[in-house]
Measured scan of single mutants.
Amino acid sequence: MDEEYDVIVLGTGLTECILSGIMSVNGKKVLHMDRNPYYGGESSSITPLEELYKRFQLLEGPPESMGRGRDWNVDLIPKFLMANGQLVKMLLYTEVTRYLDFKVVEGSFVYKGGKIYKVPSTETEALASNLMGMFEKRRFRKFLVFVANFDENDPKTFEGVDPQTTSMRDVYRKFDLGQDVIDFTGHALALYRTDDYLDQPCLETVNRIKLYSESLARYGKSPYLYPLYGLGELPQGFARLSAIYGGTYMLNKPVDDIIMENGKVVGVKSEGEVARCKQLICDPSYIPDRVRKAGQVIRIICILSHPIKNTNDANSCQIIIPQNQVNRKSDIYVCMISYAHNVAAQGKYIAIASTTVETTDPEKEVEPALELLEPIDQKFVAISDLYEPIDDGCESQVFCSCSYDATTHFETTCNDIKDIYKRMAGTAFDFENMKRKQNDVFGEAEQ
């Protein structure tokens, strides 16, 4: 370990593993360490099931009705991949897709007046949907046509809207959309967690709705994908990429100290040895004095023996409960997957309800979601602090990732990755940087 590296990475969460992969592909010498004996950090999948019970201090362990412990891979952080989103792009560019198998999530649902409705995925579904009345549908269709044709580089498509100054509230007004449709559009399509976006320039919202539609167009059922064997497969896929390009991995490796000289990182000390480096990437748990708390998320993992009611017996789905429907500031989400994804025993389902904490009784906040899941065989409640770095790391060369937020997709995580890359490399992130180099010394032969 007593060696000189360009970059040392602490923690094998998804953000850290993707950055480690990119740095290795770009010719950097990388050492990647984790104090845990497993990959994934906060974003790991726990197996066998006995391990999950232990982690949540349920000492009696799983009953026999849960089947074989080894058949379970339970995500600690519930997220899906947008089919046309940035993480899929990263997987394709790096060819990490060859280590993973994905399934399309069967449906996306939205909560309205105590019931759940399928988010329409085709024009026919939209016309048949009970989510809105006849005239509302016509106006909504006009709005969707506007979004589909919108091109930020072609003012002819703006229809009198200025993407940089017109607020989204004004765009909704222009198409005369009612409150329910606005809730549905902002939260189930643009996937905002709160209503803060309404008074911001509309460009980002329009682009988010386009991303949803384009992702949906790829597979038809929903815009989301999920990897077989759980999300823990993602960091491992990128760790393989890093290793192929010469990255060194050490799990179960305690970090005793991060060594600084004149305010700059110069190395990491572990078990009496020092590895030197020019730059350091880590998750917040490794540098508690360089991060601040930015809120909390509650996630309740529920094991069920039945599909969720009114989802047409889907073996995977997402449910969004827009905040307006339950008098909150932030949406509540449910991600459900099952034995069909090799993450649970035969006939079992895993539904994870999550939201940003707003009160001193977080469990009560998630109740509307839990009511949709009854009866629940077993619950595991996790309340996590969200951390963000206190500075950009440019001076110390210590670059810290943000905690995983309450969103049900990876777009915010990818933004964090691109942002850290830019601060480390001094140049904007470009997907081309992730391409495997042809015929290089570490390149794998085609399968």
Rank of each mutant, 00 (worst) to 15 (best):
Ile298Val: 07
Ile301Asn: 13
Leu304Met: 10
Gly347Lys: 15
Met82Ile: 08
Phe238Cys: 01
Asn262Gly: 12
Phe56His: 14
Arg55Leu: 09
Phe80Val: 03
Arg98Leu: 07
Tyr93Trp: 13
Ile417Phe: 10
Leu372Pro: 04
Glu371Cys: 11
Val297Phe: 05
Tyr5His: 01
Val206Trp: 01
Ser242Tyr: 14
Asp196Ala: 12
Asp405Arg: 02
Cys335Asp: 11
Gly160His: 04
Asp377Ala: 08
Lys269Asn: 08
Pro155His: 00
Phe380Thr: 05
Leu216Phe: 05
Gln318Asp: 10
Thr407Pro: 01
Thr15Leu: 04
Val104Phe: 14
Leu251Phe: 07
Ile332Leu: 05
Lys309Cys: 12
Asn153Gly: 07
Phe410Ser: 06
Asn149Asp: 09
Asp385Asn: 06
Phe238Val: 02
Cys414His: 11
Pro163Thr: 00
Val171Leu: 09
Phe175Leu: 05
Ala275Val: 09
Ile303Ser: 05
Phe429Met: 01
Ile281Gly: 14
Gly186Asn: 15
Arg328Val: 01
Gly232Tyr: 12
His341Asn: 00
Ser338Thr: 08
Ser213Asn: 12
Asn433His: 02
Tyr286Cys: 04
Lys112Ile: 01
Val119Leu: 10
Met424Gly: 04
Ser108Val: 09
Ser396Asn: 10
Leu228Pro: 08
Phe143Ser: 03
Asn439Arg: 13
Pro254Ala: 06
Asp196Asn: 09
Ala294Asp: 00
Asp430Glu: 01
Gly272Gln: 14
Leu304Gln: 02
Val105Leu: 04
Gly393Val: 07
Lys264Leu: 06
Glu125Val: 06
Thr413Asn: 04
Gln346Gly: 05
Ser401His: 00
Val334Asp: 06
Glu95Gly: 06
Ala217Ser: 07
Lys103Gln: 07
Pro227Thr: 00
Met33Asp: 10
Tyr93His: 10
Ser396Gly: 08
Val119Gly: 04
Glu432Trp: 12
Leu231Tyr: 05
Gly11Arg: 02
Phe429Ile: 06
Gly426Val: 08
Leu189Trp: 15
Lys435Asp: 12
Glu261Val: 07
Thr360Ser: 03
Val145Asp: 05
Val326Gly: 08
Ser24Tyr: 00
Lys293Asn: 07
Asp151Ala: 06
Ile321Arg: 02
Glu159Gln: 08
Asn207His: 03
Lys156Ala: 14
Gly230Val: 01
Leu91Thr: 13
Tyr212Ala: 11
Val25Trp: 08
Glu367Cys: 15
Lys278Ser: 13
Pro78His: 00
Tyr117Pro: 06
Ser330Glu: 15
Tyr339Asn: 06
Ile321Leu: 06
Ser316Ile: 03
Gly267Tyr: 10
Ser270Leu: 05
Lys118Ala: 05
Ala382Asn: 13
Lys379Val: 02
Cys335His: 14
Leu231Val: 11
Lys29Gly: 02
Thr413Ser: 03
Leu373Ile: 09
Asp313Glu: 00
Arg141Tyr: 08
Pro288Cys: 06
Lys269Thr: 12
Tyr117Thr: 01
Pro235Tyr: 15
Gly267Trp: 00
Cys400Phe: 08
Arg169His: 05
Asn312His: 13
Tyr286Arg: 14
Leu92Arg: 10
Val9Lys: 14
Lys435Pro: 15
Pro288Thr: 00
Asp283Gly: 09
Asn312Arg: 07
Gly113Ala: 12
Phe431Val: 05
Leu241Cys: 01
Thr97Val: 15
Met168Thr: 07
Val297Thr: 12
Ile259Thr: 06
